[in-house]
Simulated scan of single mutants.
Amino acid sequence: MYNNILTSQEDGITKITINRPSKLNALNKETIQELHAAFRVADLDAATKAIIVTGSGEKAFVAGADISEFADFSVSEGGKLAEKGQELLFDFVANLSTPVIAAVNGFALGGGLELAMAAHFRIASDNAKMGLPEVSLGVIPGYGGTQRLPQLVGKGRAMEMIMTAGMIDANQAMQYGLVNHVTTQEELLPLAEKLAGKIMRNSSVAIAAAIKSVNAAFEDGVNGFKVEIEQFGNCFGTEDFKEGTTAFLEKRKADFPGK
Rank of each mutant, 00 (worst) to 15 (best):
L132H: 12
S136L: 03
E160T: 03
A217W: 04
V182H: 01
F107R: 05
N171G: 02
A108N: 04
G144I: 06
T183G: 05
A108L: 00
Q151K: 06
A196L: 04
Q151E: 15
G106W: 03
S204R: 06
E230C: 08
R157A: 13
G156M: 10
I199K: 01
A217S: 12
F236G: 15
A108R: 00
R122Y: 04
Q172N: 02
A209N: 09
M174L: 01
M174E: 09
A165G: 10
T184C: 04
L149P: 09
D126F: 08
Q231R: 04
A158H: 08
G110Q: 03
F225C: 14
T183K: 00
L189R: 00
N105M: 04
F236A: 14
V214S: 14
E186Q: 06
R122D: 15
M159Q: 14
K198P: 02
V205C: 12
N202F: 10
M163N: 11
E228H: 09
A210I: 12
L178E: 06
A216P: 06
V104E: 14
E114N: 13
G177Y: 02
N234C: 10
Q231G: 12
N180C: 01
L109S: 10
L132R: 07
H181N: 01
G138L: 09
V179N: 00
Y143G: 12
Y176Q: 01
E228C: 12
A119W: 02
K155W: 06
Q185M: 07
Y176L: 02
A124M: 04
A118P: 07
K226P: 05
I168F: 01
A124D: 13
V104K: 02
R201D: 14
